[in-house]
């Protein structure tokens, strides 16, 4: 082999690696490095005045069981919130994609525009609506019910979740229904399936990828939710986010906080892996485009 070809071969070999460098650097700097820091802190020990002291112990992971309540709370509310959001979003998305006709654009805008306002302000507004001077007073004035408590209840938390995350659920489902070829539903009816049977056997399975994306888009951020339990739950239902804030800022137990955060990230990655596995199972190896 001549020197010339050797040189060109090696240059060609290095080419892709060089081209990938920014992405690799980005990944190392913003994904991998923080995770390493998190792990290092999680196996350290709490300093005498709080914070972090180098060390190596797995005790922090053993201590996680003392934080079981916020963990279970978070999972419970995230699941409940996701399911309620799905049950509300699916019919709405179905209506928008199939029945709304020309009103579609206006309705979609009405759903999306409010979310350009800060989430803090919108959630804060609910504290007035749900507070004793809000809906409960309206209800008692109408003589319908006395002494209704809405704010600082589990109900308020679920309401906050549904209200804040509805578009994230709605849009992927809407897109999957919108892309559904109307001829498929016509074919189903032509072959003897009524409306319900068509929905069950054609519309629902073909919108399942949208449903899954929507659930993931809602479930993941709700798991890390901090604001809603504080503002609408009154701190009674403690979420992981709140537990982490306390560990880092109040009791300054950084290693335990890091262990909790690390386990939380691990749990989330399992959810994401499960999501992609389920999506692939539901849709098969996806055709490149146009078929779904």
């Amino acid at each position: 082999m001549s020197r010339k070809t050797m040189a060109s071969t090696s240059r060609r070999g290095r080419g892709p690696a060089l081209a990938a460098t920014p992405a690799v650097l980005w990944f190392l700097l913003f994904m991998f490095a923080p995770l390493v820091v998190l792990f290092v802190v999680s196996v350290g020990v709490r300093g005498p005045g709080g914070g972090y002291q180098p060390g190596f112990t797995l005790a922090n992971y053993g201590e996680l069981q003392t934080r079981l309540v916020p963990i279970l709370n978070t999972i419970e509310f995230s699941l409940l919130g996701t399911v309620v959001t799905l049950l509300l979003a699916y019919p709405l998305a179905y209506y928008l994609a199939m029945k709304a006709g020309r009103k579609k654009v206006v309705l979609l805008a009405l759903i999306i525009v409010p979310f350009w306002t800060s989430m803090l302000i919108r959630t804060y507004a609910w504290t007035f609506l749900l507070g004793s001077k809000g809906i409960p007073e309206v209800l008692s004035a109408m003589g319908l019910a006395d002494d209704v408590r809405l704010l600082n209840t589990p109900f308020a938390i679920v309401l906050g979740i549904v209200y804040n995350y509805l578009p994230l659920m709605l849009l992927p489902i809407y897109v999957s229904l919108e892309r559904l070829d109307p001829a498929l539903r016509a074919a189903s009816k032509d072959l003897g399936a009524g409306r319900l049977a068509t929905f069950r056997q054609v519309t629902l399975p073909l919108s399942a990828p949208g449903v899954l994306s929507g659930c993931l888009l809602v479930f993941i951020p709700v798991m890390g939710e901090y604001l809603i339990p504080v503002l609408l739950g009154g701190g009674r239902s403690y979420f992981l986010g709140n537990a982490l804030a306390d560990l880092f800022l109040q009791s300054r137990n950084w290693p335990l906080g890091a262990a909790l955060a690390g386990s939380f990230i691990l749990l989330m990655s399992f959810v994401v892996v499960g999501y992609s596995w389920l999506t692939r199972r539901l849709t098969g190896p996806l055709p490149t485009e146009g078929v779904l």
Binding site: A183, A186, T283, P287, V291
Partner: peptide, 10 residues
């Protein structure tokens, strides 16, 4: 028989 067949992709 539909123009673009309308076979169920799933």
């Amino acid at each position: 028989v539909f123009q673009h067949y309308a076979l169920f992709p799933h």
